[in-house]
Design a protein around this nucleic acid. Sequence first.
DNA 1: AAATCAATTGTTCTCGTGCACAATTTGTTT
DNA 2: AAACAAATTGTGCACGAGAACAATTGATTT
Lengths: 340, 340
Amino acid sequence: MGKERYTIRDIAAMANVSRGTVDRVIHNRGTVSEDAAKKVKEVLEKINYEPNLIARSLKAHKDSVIAVVIPEYSEDYYWRQCAYGIRTSEKEFRQFGISLEYFQYSKTQEDYNKKFSEAIDFNPDAVLIAPVYYQDSLELFHRLEKKNIPFNLINTPIEDVSYRTFIGQDYRKSGRVAAQLMNTLVRNEKKILVIHVEQYFENSTHLQEKEQGFKDYLQDKNISQDIEVLTFRDAKELTDLKAILPETAGIFMTTSKTHLVAEHIGDNEDIKVIGYDLIPKNVQYMKEGKINILIHQNPISQGYDGISMLVEHLIYKREVPKVKLLPLDIVISENVDCYL
Amino acid sequence: MGKERYTIRDIAAMANVSRGTVDRVIHNRGTVSEDAAKKVKEVLEKINYEPNLIARSLKAHKDSVIAVVIPEYSEDYYWRQCAYGIRTSEKEFRQFGISLEYFQYSKTQEDYNKKFSEAIDFNPDAVLIAPVYYQDSLELFHRLEKKNIPFNLINTPIEDVSYRTFIGQDYRKSGRVAAQLMNTLVRNEKKILVIHVEQYFENSTHLQEKEQGFKDYLQDKNISQDIEVLTFRDAKELTDLKAILPETAGIFMTTSKTHLVAEHIGDNEDIKVIGYDLIPKNVQYMKEGKINILIHQNPISQGYDGISMLVEHLIYKREVPKVKLLPLDIVISENVDCYL
DNA sequence: AAATCAATTGTTCTCGTGCACAATTTGTTT
DNA sequence: AAACAAATTGTGCACGAGAACAATTGATTT
């Protein structure tokens, strides 16, 4: 049975060579005679050797530092959740010699640039980034590449960049899910609004993806439903909504600002609302019945996986996938508790 | 800052004692003078010492065996998924000296008894059980208790037994979720069927819980909907359904046998179906539109967590919660792929 | 004061891997 | 064959915790 755990010592004994030789064969470094190499390889093959990662990582204290570039999170529930995931992972890996250095940016383009730059100049061993501003990011990523620093992206995917892994949702699919749900909720001739609330909408490809997915679904299913897309730069602009609410059956909000819509809908209107993220205001409105469905974007997992997949690469040098897609969790008032 | 990683050596130096004494204080074993104990404790307090688990587990090869008592899974997709989670976890912990011994039972009461007994006589260090038959289980659990063998339950909760941790869903809530979803799907005067398909229904408290949750929700929300509960011992009995389908608006299936219902519904009937588990047949019917919603019971996580929480206890002696509730994932055809 | 025992403290080895260095063998040149 | 370099192989130590064992101190008895 291949059930036992063999050590390098065992292998050395079986192949009649020294521990050093086995080590050299495994890591193919140094010089080994053909004869010895063959014997060792045969044994390795036979017993299906798997190194003891515990012993290995006990030795391998390289003390790496990971820079974390995310939005300022003290005032923001969503990013605070994400930071919580990051910190959980930090705790777990501290004993592996991993430490984190946070670079939080306030939500302006300049500050994003500044903090990201600082992170690069800090010369970390790896970087975790929540990239919000597409254009600015490209140049910054390029600097990381030149320095040969591996980096992971969370929340917002950016194509054509040599990141290690993107952790987040398939936004196209996310939009499709929203559309299917909306279709079960709404069955009349009034129209459906797709609303974006984002200052830098042009840079936010993921919002555009959600919209596209939403439309794709309706088209695929031959559902002829009136759709109107609205893009607001600022929360205040939502007052414009009032006029069209009477002829609206449902609203799909592409961001976590879903609660804004709920606020603008009067108590008496029967408008179905689908949006994103379990931030307290959203959850509150959901429990009051003003938001029907929220799609959970798993900020905690994003943070946790973002770090741990970087560590997998730094310490264990494990292969990591290019994309780690998180589930598209559908949340209603009755199951919201188990995602909080 | 308490950011550094201190070793027992560091602590010994700081407290001006030997490494042995520090070790004795930490594990409070052996004899230590009050004076020395106080000094060491002060240092421990100050630096917030956390032992290096890697080094610890390198040494602590106790080679534990965990017995796994689950249904025969070669022919059963759900339990195969669960076994997959168990095996993933087995792989991960093999290097910690953990090995598993499987005791699969065919789905009869006698065989459950027999295999479970064998597992106990095997004298494992811990046991993971998917208990199906309530009555028989009590006696068997008692035998484990007497032998002082810790055990975890998955899938089916059994109260008043001193298991370590139950891993599974909150079935009451699960029923509530189904009810809320059904209520969005169905809005007419026809009735809703709650269907159980289970040979040993009396022993299956979790199915009864689902039913109760379903009813609770409707009552809480003052929804006056006709409900009829049907219990089938065998798949064949479902032919009886035919007669009542015309006056049925929706069906809530409490087991993974949801596909049976889909099979019995003709193509033309517009009956909404909510059921459990992403087994291939169910997924197939969902894609065809014959099943509307499936609630995912996370068999993989159940298996994985079931083992890993046992290991946490065996190796690290960490505190583990009495109940680990898995999320109540709502699955529709558009997001089914991300749960497979 | 020497002997004995208990209480306390200090030392050393182990776990499995990785790496640096030491030791050995082999081949080549004079 | 001696001298030397190159190729190959063997050995020792470090990582941090745990546990067995050895050593020291203090107290008690004869």
